[in-house]
Design a protein around this nucleic acid. Structure first.
Lengths: 345, 345
DNA sequence: AATAATGATGCACACGTGTGCAAAGGAACC
DNA sequence: GGTTCCTTTGCACACGTGTGCATCATTATT
């Protein structure tokens, strides 16, 4: 077995309580003993048992993170942001992927409770009402990141998708586009709805009409979904001159689809994405998109949780805290004015 | 406080031992009582404390995963593979990013020990000798994935980079290329060395010479590194007709660099990557690369660990197990025969 | 009917740590 | 030197769970 606090105590000729206090820097001990005991603990290669400590203190010093998929580049950047803050503050990160599967979600929530995580970060996980209640009743701080039901939780941090979407749409309108289509991801629920709303608002403000067929939905948000959708767009009787994609992954697939069909971007049709994942700067043409501060979002979520945990001890945690972040438009090469022969329509 | 096993016992009118046995399906109890107690436990919303259980059983049912960066698309796919297996078997996943920082590595190893993870998966983390010894002495199963010092650990699973590299090189040679350069990532240690070795072997076998200047190294493996390196390649007095990049990310950056300098791929120069990350199928031109079964690698690593854990209980774990996986060449659009005017050199 | 055998359940301890309280030791003061 | 006060340390319990052993009840056996 591993070395315990008692072994150190025996070696130092004191009781295990004294060792415990020494390692915590209790002011009850003399500096001399503290130093001596610490020295011995290091020499013996002692390290405390997180399980025992957690059992006693009711704090696990672990953060749970539930994400729909780890290998989605959007989420993995958020995860990286969370990790940096958590690790810097001595917290570990327990990650689970829900894959949008209700049964998995249930199992994950159960596990997080059993493991007694001190806080939970939900990244775009679509929870059933039952699981949500389950979580809230659990009593730990929960921070939502980009979730559908952000208002239902006391703490959340998310991106202002309506605003971002309006920025994107305005850009297309200012370029002279009138026939703009929207390609959404039906699985992303609230997020795609918000972006669609922003799109509609801005189009209406400009007095532009949106034919029903210009609102497309595909069941997924990967490049292959975009690739498959590109034919639908090209087959439209009145082809749009610009396409607003729900996210960069879809846009990247669309770019490939249009290219292999022999169309030029932005010559024949402009394409915009959303999120500014790393790759959007390396497509050909490079992708105009809306930058979301992903790493920052993750880091802020972690800071929010950790701050709450600190303040809970002093009973001064705020009842609610909601951060709404705005993104910023990145104009690159995939957008341009519409083709001349279509401009006057 | 939460509901404990004792609360359930009181409610059921039995001792806490009986409850414990019932929940574990002990054959000592009658089926009737087992069922009754389980029912009550569910009704009361009881869930066991992982900390207490871990303290008692010396098993945490958690897997530690150390990776250099979470948001690297190569690693995040491996992580996803690990997660799926772990979750399916009731194990949680503790992830930490080392960022190639020795101090962080030290802190992470310490944390994994304190948390008493049952097994550890190291993904391309470059450990110091000291940390390695520290880990091995810890005594838990450790599986290396694509690590520098795979042989020094008893269990490892990695990709045969030398073989993959030879496949890639052979492909270029068969296309007729004679002037081939290699762009490595000096930070990735062993991995880049292996790929370089394969490259050299195959070139030698074909009787082709490699000028010193054709072996490039950049300190990183991101697209920006590739982008920056592209000028160096174009500025060479005798420009290569093909470029073999350490990984897809570098290749993608190179593609952009060459394109913005007005060069055509594969018309003027062929480019190949390595890893087959999702995006390599969506560049323009699409990238010829070597497919590594990333998800499978992750899943196999997890299975290996979990299998070891099962067998350790029966004292029949093997002393050593090493899996070497081979990848497969994916020929796409970024490679072609060299330009005609350079073919006869 | 006494004993053995079988089945069901409780008692009590252990895992490693943190902490309130008591106790012991020493110094300072009168 | 006795009293008081402060500093330093140990005792003992608690956290929630698992498990060997003992106990008790019941049934089968002689």
């Amino acid at each position: 077995m591993a070395i315990t606090i008692k072994d150190v105590a025996k070696q130092a000729g004191v009781s295990h309580s004294t060792v415990s206090r020494a390692l915590h820097g209790s002011s009850l001990l003399s500096e001399e003993t503290v130093e001596r005991i610490r020295q011995i603990a290091v020499e013996m290669g002692y390290f405390p048992s997180a399980a025992a400590r957690s059992l006693k203190t009711n704090r696990s010093h672990a953060l749970g993170v539930i994400v729909s998929a780890i290998d989605d580049p959007f989420f993995s950047e958020i995860l990286q942001g969370i990790e940096e803050i958590a690790q810097g503050r001595g917290y570990s990160m327990l990650i689970a992927a829900s894959q949008r599967d209700p049964e998995r979600e249930r199992a994950i929530v159960q596990d997080m409770r059993e493991r007694h995580v001190d806080g939970l970060i939900l990244c775009s996980a679509s929870f059933s009402v039952e699981q949500r209640r389950n979580l809230l009743q659990y009593g730990i701080p929960i921070v939502m990141v980009n979730n559908q039901a952000a208002e239902e939780y006391r703490y959340s941090i998310y991106h202002d998708d309506v605003d971002g979407s309006r920025q994107v749409t305005r850009h297309l309108i200012e370029l002279g586009h009138k026939r703009i289509a929207y390609l959404g991801n039906s699985l992303s629920g609230r997020t795609t709805m918000d972006r669609l709303t922003g799109f509609r608002q801005e189009m209406e403000a400009a007095g532009l009409d949106i034919p029903d067929e210009y609102i497309l939905e595909v069941p997924g948000g990967g490049p292959e979904d975009g690739f498959n959708a590109s034919n639908q767009i090209l087959d439209m009787p009145e082809r749009p001159t610009a396409l607003f994609c729900f996210n960069d992954l879809l846009a990247i697939g669309v770019l490939k689809g249009l290219h292999s069909a022999g169309f030029s971007v932005p010559g024949d049709i402009s394409v915009v994405g959303f999120d500014n994942i790393v790759f959007s700067a390396y497509t050909n043409p490079t992708l105009t998109t809306l930058e979301q501060p992903k790493r920052y979002i993750g880091a802020e979520a972690a800071r929010l949780i950790l701050g709450l945990l600190d303040r809970i001890e002093d009973k001064e945690a705020p009842d609610q805290e909601i951060q709404k972040l705005k993104g910023r438009l990145l104009v690159r090469q995939s957008t341009a004015p519409p083709p001349i022969d279509l401009r006057q329509l």
